[in-house]
């Protein structure tokens, strides 16, 4: 590896203990042996179904909870050892998160100005030769919104796409270097998904912002990212360059995931018996994947898989 990675995860484990109201407590292995590294200015997609641990992984990187074992390093420094408030604030500044639901992630009682002013002030991001007003305008222009028209608006006056832009702006305002985007387009309308993806792509290519892109949509992952990690049951089952994973998936689960992506070119097989076969096949693959404890092993240039 030539340049030191911006973000590295080394054998990260996290187990949740669920205390149910009735019955015994349950252990849920949310993250098991997660290791990967991400170069500055690149994007990595974490792809998997609900409950595969992809969001948990993103939240772990954002430092939203303590991991059980393993190490998460940002620019070589473990985030868990940040003790002083200055160090903590510095990590928080570098690593920002954009959530799935643009309707829930903005405070409905405050204007866009409030949402952007606070991070700027908290992280003291207004340089001496600039004013707060200038910084606000600059940030909004960065996400292709008209500052004059949006600054005084409340979240309910904005569309889903505009709100997601505000969320990105909020991350950019404090000078984020890594943005963890947790399904940022899944709640948006199809017609505007592309524009948000393009904005992220532009931020990556022109600003060198690093993205950890969490999604269940392989097509958008392929569009935005250099590398993809397919997750299942808290483990990474396959890792490699996104176009290779899409063109030539190796793991049975990656293949299943890929074959399920809707494509206008293939008609669905309208046969009652075959529908059962597909369901059974999907269940078998899931079971086999969950049961396997094989380690992640290299299967060629930059590619890894659990057999």
């Amino acid at each position: 590896m030539s340049a030191p990675a911006f973000l590295t995860l080394d054998q990260v484990h996290k187990t949740y203990t669920l205390k149910t109201m009735f019955g015994p407590t349950k252990q849920v292995k949310a993250l098991q042996d997660i290791s990967f590294s991400l170069q500055k200015g690149q994007a990595l997609a974490l792809v998997g179904e609900s409950g595969s641990g992809k969001s948990t992984c993103g939240r772990a990187v954002a430092g939203m909870f303590q991991i059980d074992s393993g190490k998460i390093c940002v620019e070589g420094k473990p985030i868990a050892t940040a003790h002083t408030s200055k160090e903590k604030r510095e990590t928080a500044r570098k690593v920002q998160m954009v959530f799935q639901d643009p309707f829930a992630s903005l405070n409905p009682t405050h204007t866009v100005r409030h949402h952007l002013e606070r991070p700027l002030k908290l992280h003291k991001r207004v340089p001496a030769d600039s004013t707060l007003e200038d910084e606000l305008h600059r940030t909004l222009t960065d996400v292709e919104l008209d500052p004059a028209a949006t600054l005084e608006k409340y979240p309910h006056e904005l569309s889903g796409g505009q709100r997601q832009r505000i969320n990105l702006a909020r991350a950019l305002a404090v000078g984020a270097e890594l943005i963890i985007a947790d399904e940022p387009t899944s709640m948006l309308d199809v017609s505007i998904r592309r524009s948000i993806l393009n904005l992220m792509k532009r931020l990556k290519d022109e600003r060198g912002i690093t993205f950890l892109y969490i999604t269940h949509d392989l097509a958008t992952a392929h569009y935005l990212t250099e590398n993809t990690a397919v997750m299942f049951g808290g483990r990474i089952v396959e890792y490699g360059p996104s176009d290779q994973i899409v063109r030539d998936p190796q793991h049975a689960y990656s293949k299943l995931l890929l074959s399920s992506v809707p494509s206008a070119k293939t008609k669905i097989d309208a046969n009652f018996e075959h529908a059962k076969d597909f369901s059974n096949f999907a269940d078998e693959v899931r079971k086999a994947t969950a049961a396997s404890t094989a380690p992640l092993a290299s299967i060629g240039e930059g590619r890894m898989m659990r057999s």
Binding site: E49, S50, H216, D217, L218, L256, L257, S259, S260, V261, P262, I268, D269, A270, N271, F272, E273, H274, A275, K276, F278, S279, A282
Partner: peptide
């Protein structure tokens, strides 16, 4: 729904419709 489950349901609907 997730993509895989989505595919399962769609296949199910198509099968039932054919039947």
């Amino acid at each position: 729904l997730d993509v895989v489950v989505q595919r399962e349901i769609l296949q199910e609907i198509a099968g039932l419709q054919a039947k």
